[in-house]
Design a protein around this nucleic acid. Structure first.
Lengths: 156, 156
DNA sequence: GTGGGACCTAAAGTCCACTTGAGGTCAAGG
DNA sequence: CCTTGACCTCAAGTGGACTTTAGGTCCCAC
């Protein structure tokens, strides 16, 4: 081993499926060199990059957004404290937003217990953060502020 | 009007799109009688039912799960305080769990700012809920609380 | 020199919660 | 009579993040 990792090794060490790794490469989230035979060889730094991707997903970013964020960071070095701080702050805002929305939901719920109201116009549970949105097709289980806890449902 | 609502009226009053209402009927979440001409006529109770659906979605339930929950409630009456309280409590647990997970993420993030670590084994952001390094080299999954699908059910 | 992994590509499938489109029916109004 | 508008059905499309499938290559061990 010359410090480069096969896709299988990356998958094993990162917990990201091989197919997902290929998909990420296609989406420009990670990059790999190739052997003579065409097999991917990932630099070790891909592990950090994948950590970043995972973390960003946890914060609720889409892959295109994550790609943007990654583009702002150095390709193969540890990001500078300043860059990192800026990103982190943005993420924390998002987290705060999500947490707030959930808390609102929960508190609305508490006040609902026993009353059974679910008032269409007033119930905080029904209408959290009063986003009533109609936003085009696609899965939309949570109100925008709450959207997306990533699928990560590999067997465990 | 004999207390029955057209699909358009239901859509307007509930904020749920006409197409969604038809979809819900197909999924067994709501039911409607038909006029001679074949048009749907919804009982007024559908509004409460839809409120329930919305609320449950906000808590993160899938439509099949919601159908289950609805099955446990009386078809056309207001649910009893007891039933309602039981459901609400379950939902609040879910919310609490999600909120906790997100807070952990956020707090881990705060401690990351300026360090730029994203350590695969130690970083709270990457590995929320310290399901951390316990498991040999490489990273692990999301904390259960951030996973999409509840322990009681299967997944997509 | 052959069997078996690990790898490759491109395309299609999956899941969820819907929406959109095509093509048709029905009741009321001008 | 004809149009308008609300409704109908069934089929296909949408978006995100992947996975699965089909068919092939590469290389190592026996």
């Amino acid at each position: 081993m010359d410090g480069l990792l096969t896709i299988g090794q990356v998958a094993e060490r990162s917990g990201v499926a091989v197919s997902a790794l290929r998909y990420y490469e296609a989406q420009g989230l990670v990059s790999a060199s190739r052997t003579a035979g065409g097999a991917r060889r990932f630099p070790r730094s891909v592990l950090r990059r994948l950590a970043f991707v995972r973390a960003a997903q946890n914060v609720g970013l889409t892959l295109p957004e994550i790609r943007e964020a990654l583009a702002a960071l150095p390709e193969d070095r540890t990001p500078s404290g300043r860059d990192w701080a800026r990103l982190s702050a943005a993420w924390r805002d998002r987290l705060d937003e999500r947490i707030r929305a959930l808390e609102q939901l929960r508190d609305g719920l508490s006040s609902c217990i026993g009353c059974g109201c679910l008032s269409l116009t007033r119930c905080a549970l029904y209408n959290p953060g009063d986003v009533a949105a109609a936003e085009g097709p696609g899965a939309r289980r949570l109100s925008p502020a709450l959207r997306r806890v990533p699928p990560t449902s590999n067997a465990g």
